[in-house]
């Protein structure tokens, strides 16, 4: 018997703090798998957000910096400009990137900063208890849209990949999901392509990952995975949104 699957070397031993069935855990693991497979452990610098994903520095055995909420893209810009040969990626949630950090993300993309953004879209603010996020769907119930998100009062769910695709500085934008094995494998490929895009100096890359949040969606873990395909993916179509060769 040979080991067919083991924990990636660059993933530390610490147990994940994420809720059962949370997509962050899968994404964290995929990132370290990609970093191991591409041999990037000694070049990688990760900017952690504020939000559920912020404790990644307890799990990633690479250089990490925790940025203020929403400022990851600007911090990553500063790092990359000083250290162009490093692999610099900013891990951000939907509140971090699409709400408070919109300007920073938008302009890093517009400047074509050769950084990668791992954008975890789980439709709510997880860490703070399930409030509406910019990606909360219409009529979706959250703790701050108790009667369902009414677009007239609370706006529409924002499609970051499509918005950023309008910016000439962006080179690779893909939306994937981690709600089933096949999707997880595609997500891993997308992350690899984003990192390769950065290493090849082709400009700005962002991978938007639809991620289940059973606790705050008030669903079972399997139901949450299904909900992504049946409901969420309608608003956030899976696929490559932009790819400059």
């Amino acid at each position: 018997m040979k080991k067919a699957y083991v924990k990636p070397k660059t993933l530390k031993e610490a147990h994940f703090h994420y809720c059962p069935g949370c997509g962050h855990g899968i994404i964290n693991r995929l990132l370290m798998e990609v970093i191991d497979e591409m041999g990037l452990r000694e070049k990688a610098i990760c900017v952690a957000p504020a939000g559920c994903g912020m404790l990644l520095y307890n799990y990633f055995d690479i250089d990490t910096l925790e940025s203020a909420h929403g400022r990851g893209a600007a911090v990553a810009t500063g790092i990359k400009r000083v250290r162009p040969d490093n692999l610099v990626f900013s891990y951000q949630g939907d509140g971090d990137l699409a709400a408070i950090g919109t300007a920073e993300g938008f302009h890093a993309a517009n400047r074509g900063e050769p950084i990668s953004i791992i954008f975890v879209n789980n439709g709510v603010y997880g860490m703070t208890g399930g409030q509406m996020a910019p990606t909360t769907l219409k009529q979706q119930v959250t703790t701050t849209t108790p009667l369902g998100r009414n677009p007239i009062l609370a706006g529409h769910p924002v499609r970051i990949c499509e918005v950023f695709s309008m910016l000439d500085g962006t080179s690779y934008l893909e939306r994937v999901a981690v709600n089933k094995p096949a999707a997880v494998i595609k997500t891993k490929k997308a992350i690899k392509k984003a990192f390769q895009c950065q290493l090849d100096g082709k400009g700005f890359s962002l991978v938007e990952i639809l991620s289940p949040c059973p606790t705050n969606w008030k669903m079972g873990t399997i139901e949450a995975c299904r909900w992504i395909d049946e409901v969420m993916a309608k608003q956030f179509p899976i696929g490559v949104v932009k790819e400059i060769s």
Binding site: G78, I79, V82
Partner: peptide, 26 residues
Amino acid sequence: RVFIQSESEIAAINMVLGASVAGARA
């Protein structure tokens, strides 16, 4: 050397933070 006219003063100070943690005088 590195010069960026940022999109806001908030972005600028955070770029300083990034450059500084990467070892530069910012």
